[in-house]
């Protein structure tokens, strides 16, 4: 195992996690005002009507697929009587479906971003960078699904190396040697995925954390007091807090 392997499969994952967590907390504290979907629907609504749900629902399915594939050990599904081949058939079918929806969605969204004038004008450099990383991860992910299924190459059961490595990271007992031997496409996709999480807190992707599930459970009309909150947006400086609050 080379130094590069240690760097990629031990150092990078922990750096990713640290950046992701600390960055998100920092962004939330520092930049609540910039924390938004920054929708461009106002400029154009026909393309987004198809592309955005396609992409978002696709990527949510992809997320579920990743959680199941990476977190749940193979022995558990086997205990449930799901054989390796059945599991992979299901995973590949759903994965291809979700991945294709996501890919078509993001391609349409990028096409819209580039061709619809006002949308392009409202696209920041930050957005463009994000699209490169996200698009790369998605495309490589789809490729990896095909490799894993044996459509390209000879097939590979990632639940015996990649998934175990993933859990080993979370358990703070990293096993980089597992990744070092995984097929190239898996390694590239894993790196691309980690990079998405590295930039995540610093892009508009943060809006994913704002999924408004609480809306289902709150009363319709929200009342708020003017006090004791200050009307301004800035908290009192240390040492200048009001007395007697």
């Amino acid at each position: 195992m080379s130094t590069a392997d240690i760097l990629l499969w031990v150092a990078l994952p922990y750096a990713t996690i640290a950046t992701f967590v600390v960055g998100t907390i920092w962004r939330y504290r520092y930049d609540k005002f910039g924390w938004t979907t920054r929708s461009s629907q106002l400029y154009e609504r026909r393309l987004i009507r198809i592309a955005s749900p396609l992409f978002h629902i696709g990527i949510l399915a992809v997320l579920v697929g990743h959680v199941v594939g990476l977190v749940i050990p193979e022995s558990w599904t086997e205990a449930l009587g799901v054989s390796e081949s059945l599991y992979h058939a299901m995973a590949v079918a759903l994965g291809l479906f979700a991945g294709a929806a996501t890919l078509v969605g993001i391609v349409l969204l990028i096409y819209r971003r580039r061709t619809v004038g006002p949308v392009f004008a409202a696209t920041t450099r930050n957005d463009k960078t994000m699209y490169v990383f996200l698009g790369a991860a998605i495309a490589l992910g789809l490729l990896t699904t095909l490799v894993g299924a044996g459509v390209l190459g000879e097939g590979h059961n990632y639940r015996e190396d990649v998934s175990v490595w993933f859990r080993s990271i979370l358990l703070f007992q990293p096993q980089p040697e597992l990744m070092a031997e995984a097929p190239l496409s898996f390694r590239v996709h894993a790196v691309a995925g980690m990079l998405v999480f590295v930039i995540w807190p610093f892009t508009r992707l943060v809006h994913a954390f704002s999924a408004p599930l609480g809306y289902l459970f709150r009363p319709y009309v929200v009342y708020r007091d003017r006090g004791p909150h200050d009307p301004g947006s800035r908290a009192a400086r240390p040492g200048w807090e009001r007395i007697g609050q």
Partner: peptide, 25 residues
């Protein structure tokens, strides 16, 4: 408002948007 960013002020009934809580839905 899904985020609960919009509110009615209980003192004077003015309806406002909390710019820090709005997520642009």
């Amino acid at each position: 408002c899904p985020s609960g960013a919009m509110y009615k002020r209980s003192e004077d009934g003015i309806v406002l948007v909390d710019q820090d809580a709005c997520r642009g839905w």
